[in-house]
Design a binder for these strands. Sequence first.
DNA 1: ATTAAAAGCCAC
DNA 2: AAACGTGGCTTTTAAT
Length: 565
Amino acid sequence: MVTGLPGGQRRVQPDELPALVRAVEAAGPTPPRWVWADTNRFYPGLLRSGVRVERAHDLRLCHRILRHSTLTANSALATAAPGGPWDTMPAVSLTDEPARVPDTLFGPPEPKVAEAGPDPVEALRHQHDAVAASPGQGRLGLLLAAESAGALAAAEMHHAGLPWRADVHDAVLTEVLGPRPRHGERPERLEELVQRIRAALDAPASLNPDSHPDLLKAMNLAGVGAKTLRKWELERLSHPVIEPLLEYKSLSRLLTANGWNWLDSWVRDGRFRTEYVVGGVVTGRWATNGGGALQLPKNVRAAVVADPGWTFVVADAAQLEPRVLAAMAGDEAMAAAGRGDDGEGIDMYAGIVATGAVDTRERAKIGMLGAMYGGTTGVSGQVRPQLAAAFPRAMALVDDAARAGERGEVVTTHLGRSSPLPGETWQELQAGAYSADDGAGDAAARARSYTRSWGRFTRNFVVQGTAAEWALCWLASLRRRLWQLGMADGGDGVEGAVPAPFTERAHLVSFVHDEVVVHTPISLADAVADEVRAAAAEAGRLLFGDFPVAFPLSVATATCYTDAE
DNA sequence: ATTAAAAGCCAC
DNA sequence: AAACGTGGCTTTTAAT
């Protein structure tokens, strides 16, 4: 059922939906906002039919935010008994089996009764009520719009896919590992390294370097003196086995995580498609399902090559989190340190050095990261009082968030996404800390440790979560701008031709926390770069209004991802 | 036999 | 330098 149409409501068959949506999108000067239970349930099919929508409201994603936000704590939505349909509705996954087309051998399929599901109109009303009554000058409304736009962008990026040259990927692997081995065998380079490791340890040919206990035992016998196999620890030891072992670990990682098997599994028809999970991280950052798309190692990014006649515009936000912290804390001094004289933005860590608060860029960086992560030792600990003196408001914000977490309270981002409550472990440990009888060591110490750990989580939550909100607004703005760019240019230049979504226009192909990649016709690359910057400025205004904080980007254009970094 | 946890490295 | 935030993913090992 589609309601709210110009001509009232209509019941449509699934195959009628694309034409209907296309018509309504094209009808008026103001595009509609489609409200649906889950973007992934409707949008992939529309995209396959060549239909792109401008705006949407994802009821499931928005419900999840409103259910837990401190800004809507008194709403009917948030005070309802838990376990309602919108609380328990599972996300639709793009990898779910598509509804199988029934066999037609025995005549047309039985008409299916659409599953009832909860009433979306009623849900929308509840969500509107909750947002309308929330404090914060429309911040929650902005968050819901950005979250929903993100869901559209995520589906579109999956639809378009990240251009991926399997032949280039294979060449990279062959270069460092040797030719692809037969099933069950090690590549040449790895086999050589295994031999060298065994020889250096005087170990039998049965030693499997992938078995950590066995390897550690053999290393102990050879007197290497390693307690763990962590890279940074091994690097500090001197023994003939260290060099081949580190090399083995590095190559082995490449093979298992992004080797030929990965290529076979994830690259089809020149595209890598992952499933972006909008809001998949507690802080609001995205997660992905499949292919490890958020952790593609630098050396395999060489396989990300633009189509002929196309190129990439790669942009990332410089020092996003400290800038977000400065803005949300209203810390003028800290914002000024990242702004520079022209107001366009300078390297923030260099700017902090320029204020005289800290003596080197490296120490400024470690100190800021430590303040946001809760580091207390080493350089973090040394620089901290200096930063606290120079930027008291920013440091107070993260310290307050940490203390709230330690008290077991919830913290909330700038736009209104709230942290979860600590789990049962927290409660139990607090109770246990006061019980005299505890057989398993120092209960009070464990409670303290867990409490501090939760404080580090809430400390980081407010910054990482607000940075994710900025990035979401950036992405949403850029998505809209890229579409407009396509309208202006006409895509392939054919008069009157409407470019198909994402095959003839500049389009997003990757988003990783604070970095975007746009795949664009070469002729539009400069315009895309302008829009990427304009979108960043717009995101800053949307979140922080007139507060004078800069969000400079590093932007590069290249036909290969590797060359843009 | 299946599942969960641990260890480790990759990304931001 | 050290072990301070969020994750995904793979392999081995332990547990059920």
